Amino acid sequence: MTEPLRLSKRMSELGLCSRREADEWIARGWVRVDGKVVSELGSKVLPSQKITVERQAAAEQSKRVTVLINKPVGYVSGQAEDGYKPAVTLVSPENRWADDPSPERFHPTQLRSLVPAGRLDIDSVGLLVLTQDGRIAKQLIGEDTSIEKEYLVRVQYTKPGRLPDAELRKLNHGLWMDGKPLLPAKVSWQNDDQLRFVLKEGKKRQIRRMCDMVGLKVIGLKRVRIGRVKLGDLPPGQWRYLRPDEQF
């Protein structure tokens, strides 16, 4: 017999919402299992049972915004630390990109629970996603995400000559980190001092650590794409809304 699962976990697995949203909806009486309202947190269901949500939940979810920022150096992705500001402080009417095609109007409530879906360290720049939508967060940073992230990385070889081809092959596949093999990556030269990295995982400071292992020092790192969404012409320090027709 199949084991029962927590209702919130099952809703997240089905892609209906994040676990946090699920708990909120259950508490509000917006979730039905086999047609019956279930409002007790921690309730369990069998995988065969049918879960439906009320229209209010879908309406609430559709109001949640996702924002793309071109993060400059000196901002942290998440919580403020060591006197550095979090990237969310850039989301203000003054910093909105003048060419943002979205008809969405800015409202301060959009800053509520607007959290980073993935991170860029303080010295890195480029595309950072902040979202109120648990489905997008799960898609980008969930355990089983397979969404590509593309980076342009300016490097300096710390040994004489050029980086040997064998070391470049190691960057593509063959390095270990934190006791585990890294997933295959796509790493190629863009020009004499710049590499293009395409990764499907995002360990802390992963690219800097990978480069370090083969004798490369990272001079600059910029994320230019997440899935099918590109940084494009968005200027540094500015932001825009994710358009309804854009999918990661």
Rank of each mutant, 00 (worst) to 15 (best):
I219F: 02
I226D: 06
A27T: 01
R196Q: 10
Q156W: 10
D245W: 03
I219S: 07
E3H: 11
G142F: 14
G174P: 09
R112Y: 13
V67K: 04
E143C: 06
I147C: 11
D212V: 04
S146P: 00
L234T: 04
V65I: 15
Q49Y: 08
K204G: 03
E3M: 09
R135F: 03
T145D: 04
L111N: 06
L242M: 14
D192E: 14
V115T: 06
L130P: 04
G134P: 04
F248I: 14
N70C: 08
V229E: 14
I26V: 07
S113H: 09
M213H: 07
V115H: 07
E21W: 00
P103V: 12
K149T: 06
P235W: 15
M210C: 11
M177S: 11
R105W: 10
L168C: 13
R32D: 06
I219G: 04
V53M: 13
D82K: 15
D100G: 12
K170S: 12
I69F: 10
R243N: 06
Q110P: 07
V115S: 02
Y75R: 00
V224P: 09
Q238A: 14
R6I: 03
Q61G: 00
I147A: 08
S43N: 05
E40W: 02
L195A: 04
T145G: 02
S48T: 14
K50G: 12
E81M: 13
V37R: 11
I26H: 01
G179W: 13
K44H: 12
P108D: 10
A87G: 07
L152Q: 10
R196V: 03
D82M: 11
K170F: 10
P181S: 11
L175N: 03
W97P: 05
D123V: 00
G35Y: 15
Y157L: 00
Q247H: 13
L163R: 03
L234E: 06
A137V: 04
H173I: 08
L7I: 02
D192F: 08
R105N: 09
L68Q: 10
A98K: 13
G174Q: 03
V73S: 05
L5K: 11
E150Y: 07
S62L: 05
K203T: 06
F248T: 09
P184H: 12
P164V: 02
D178S: 10
R243T: 06
L195P: 05
P244D: 13
S8R: 02
V65H: 07
L114Y: 09
S8T: 00
I226Q: 08
R209H: 12
G83D: 12
P93T: 09
Q132F: 13
M210I: 07
K230G: 07
G126T: 08
T2C: 08
L140F: 10
P103E: 15
V67H: 04
P235F: 15
K222M: 14
A59G: 00
I136E: 05
H107W: 12
